[in-house]
Amino acid sequence: MTPLSPTDYDAIRLSLQVAVAATLLSLPFGFAVAYLVTFVKFRGKVLLEVFINMPLTLPPVVVGYFLLLLLGKHGWLGNLLNEAGIRLIFTLKAAVIASAIVGFPLLVRSLRICMEGIDPQLISASRTLGARWYDTLLSVILPLSVPGLTAGSSLMFARSLGEFGATIIVAGNIPGVTQTIPLAIYEYASSPTSENMALTLCLVSVAISIVVLFLHEMMAKKMAQRS
């Protein structure tokens, strides 16, 4: 087996960095959206659900392209950010955003399944005991959603580690800056002389995935036991 090069170590570090940041960034939003979809009645709920789940079915390349349209120099959000001196495209931040969007539906899904399992009478009980809606949210729904949060974020973490299609468009494939493990593997695999290097990195990513999915299964079991 070929030993890892410094850029490979960079790729591993960047991958972990992107996955952690994307997951942490998504947690509050994921929780809010799952709460909305599960507990709040409002018009256009189906639209929101479709919109949230879209990255699950869209090719990641399309997500990446939309992000480029949105955040690029001439995109309407990119324009504003540019004036504020913030540049996202071709930076690690763009990789984080791409991973967050692609993994978001997985987080929301896990959280929703968990929240739907919460007995609605617990929420009624909390309200009649004097808790306002946000108090109930924090003192009942949040603690009971912990299994969903952990399961969802582990799944999302794993998905972020593997994110390729959207990342390569908005973040580019810059070694040491935005090149994550899948991007590095792609580069190796398309050159006749460095196939062995690709194999080493593949094994690294297999190892990380196994650890993360193993944790995920443990969380899912815990959740099943509770209900």
């Binding site: 001439h74 495209i89 071709f90 468009i169 810059i174 070694p175």
Partner: peptide, 19 residues
């Protein structure tokens, strides 16, 4: 200053979009 793209067509896409 370099941005690495997946292929030549992606390079051109970045140029066309002004990125």
């Amino acid at each position: 200053k370099l941005v690495m793209a997946k292929d030549v067509r992606e390079c051109l896409m970045y140029v066309e979009r002004g990125e």
